[in-house]
Design a protein around this nucleic acid. Structure first.
Lengths: 214, 214, 214, 214
DNA sequence: TATGAATGAGGTTTCATTCAT
DNA sequence: CATGAATGAAACCTCATTCAT
């Protein structure tokens, strides 16, 4: 069970939780977590304030739900066949990385507020992330491991697992930064188009995977 | 003049601003911006709350000062000869990048709270960053331009300026992420030592700079 | 029937009431009445909150039960042969009073929280004390009447009933004050040991009983 | 300075505190402390809620003020010549004690709510009574010391100080009990008129002071 | 200009009570 | 009858901002 969350998940109670999570997901797409008030959440979910406290011990207990919502969104996105990554045998590593980058980019642009909040709270309250966050990361790392395996002959990093992790980390960090905060932040230095940026990201990961150990 | 900041910079008034900025700098190293109250700032600066409002129209008007403080810190750090980057003719690109990475890492570890807040607000309130942020970025990009120029024969990117910008962006983003939030966030996937991470960062930038255009 | 209490005392219903009273008695020994929540009581009694409201119209309706619990405790205490007051013919009034005082003191020290709450609510909500409180008092007054009767020749108060009432009142008030609130309150002025206090109490009652009418 | 109370007592600030204390005193005469809300106090004092928190860190910080108000009331009462206790040489101990009792009784009847609350919180929150409570007690004990000194030949208790303390304690406890809670509580056993009760109280103290050590 | 007391909207949390199941 | 989820009024407290001195 998530931190501060309150037991009992059946019948009316279960539906209430669903209403709350749905209302919360809506709000998370509209504004940052700390501008969301409990009263607002209650209203959006169509329940009373007390009801929120019936399911969540306090406002902090909602933080793990951010990741639950995030994970749900990713699953929904991954379930869409349009986003399936098919690794053709005739393909090479670089275009495959570009596909991945382009996909990640689309996702970031589609759900900026939610992803922003998730990333923010993963940092602000690491104690409250729960297991969903790990699941999210491991899934993504796994995808890279597959790609590396598939184009094994092109990759020169000796430790494939470490390489997959770093590749994920690189791509994730760099794209989230640019995708979420756009022209603000250090990204302002770039002044490039979306497409150019996607290409550069792919190049970066490609460069990392194919360069020899020091 | 910075947004929301109030004119008149002479005599008593000027010293008041200095006191405020110094107190603010102290507090920024201790806690996040939004946990700093105006009353707290006034006390730390040794002035009255009303006086703060005499210089800054509202709390938001302090956000640009975050970047001013950040820039001042960078300048102080850059002014220290111990941190000067000397590009020896006999050197090669890769060790030079490693030096840069190691330096950046030290800085991040020395001033995490301030850098965290600056990066956060550059994203949360891009409208309020002011000119200092640009100055910070251009300075850093410039350093990369120098390095690229110096090891020109090793770099295969055709557009040197664009390459310098991306290199800065990469390094900055990736290191800030890992340096500030450590094990939380996607960085948790890495599970590597500081030294290994620094090396990987250098490799990444190196890989990017030396890989051929698509 | 007690105020606000709900009829029907048979079978399942009767056992529910017992569970509630037992749980309530436990809680009364742990904390003041107004820090006890209905949800807490329900849990302790092993029933649902709604069930509490099935037996008691509202929280106030529990106040008379405080006295019921108090009375039960006194009866339990009085039933213990170790606490029986045997008035020997060779005894005199003063040592008898000291025995009574010492006994009362032990009781106060054994059940401070419950007695404190009972006395508090007898004052705060005199409308809700119910008949149990009278029973408690009359039992105690009766004991004094016996003692006065037994040492009739030593007592100089003409009205024996009034004397018994005042004696009880004196002892009760003075000891409860000191026993429950110890060093706080006016008792702070005393600064005496338990034994000395018990002796002084006995002296006081003795002085009252043996002094002549004005 | 009192616990949780906030510094600065001059000019506007001083007047605000006065307004608050006056409004508080009014409310204390009307209802128990814990039914008084901060918003209510603010309104009564004619200030904003924030202002209350500007002077008192939290609601608990008002508890010491209860005793301040109580002490002020006692001083006001003591200052009235009508209440001065003149010990005539021709007097004897017993009538003097009766005068004291009668006076105490009048006071109790005049300010029941305030005295009730003060006594209640002296017990509930002994940590917050502050110095005023000690001052109140010592003043009262001092009065008894005087009386005992004046009628020294009638008093048979060897330790005059201890006797004064016990006399005060007795009288205070017994009268407060009866005066504040009237017919509720153990006082219900008495069923006597006010005058008879006053006489009995005097007799009790007299009995105590004039009976020989055990 | 400097001060800091005063303000009050707005946020979180508790808990007696109701009522659908 | 029993249950416990749902309710929402009401309490406490914070803090950016104003304004009289």
């Amino acid at each position: 069970m998530r931190q501060g969350e309150i037991q009992a998940e059946q019948g009316r109670s279960r539906r209430t939780r669903e209403k709350l999570v749905m209302g919360f997901a809506e709000l998370l797409r509209e504004k940052p977590f700390d501008s969301i008030t409990i009263a607002e959440l209650a209203k959006r979910a169509g329940v009373g304030v007390g009801t929120v406290y019936g399911r969540f011990a306090n406002k902090d207990a909602l933080i793990p739900v951010i990741f639950e919502v995030y994970l749900k969104m990713l699953e929904h996105y991954a379930g869409d066949p349009a986003n399936a990554l098919t690794l053709d045998e005739t393909d090479t590593l670089r275009p495959a990385l570009e596909k991945i980058c382009a996909q990640a980019w689309r996702l970031l642009r589609a759900e900026p507020q939610l992803i922003r909040t998730a990333h923010l709270y993963a940092r602000l309250r690491p104690d409250l992330v729960g297991e969903d966050w790990d699941a999210i990361i491991e899934a993504a790392v796994g995808q890279f491991r597959q790609v590396i395996e598939h184009f094994s002959h092109e990759v020169r990093r000796p430790d494939r697992d470490a390489a997959a992790r770093m590749a994920f980390y690189l791509l994730n960090t760099v794209m989230v930064e640019q995708g979420l905060y756009g022209d603000a932040g250090p990204g302002a230095a770039l002044r490039v188009s979306d497409d150019a940026f996607i290409t550069d990201c792919a190049t970066t990961v490609y460069g990392f995977l194919t360069s020899v150990e020091k």
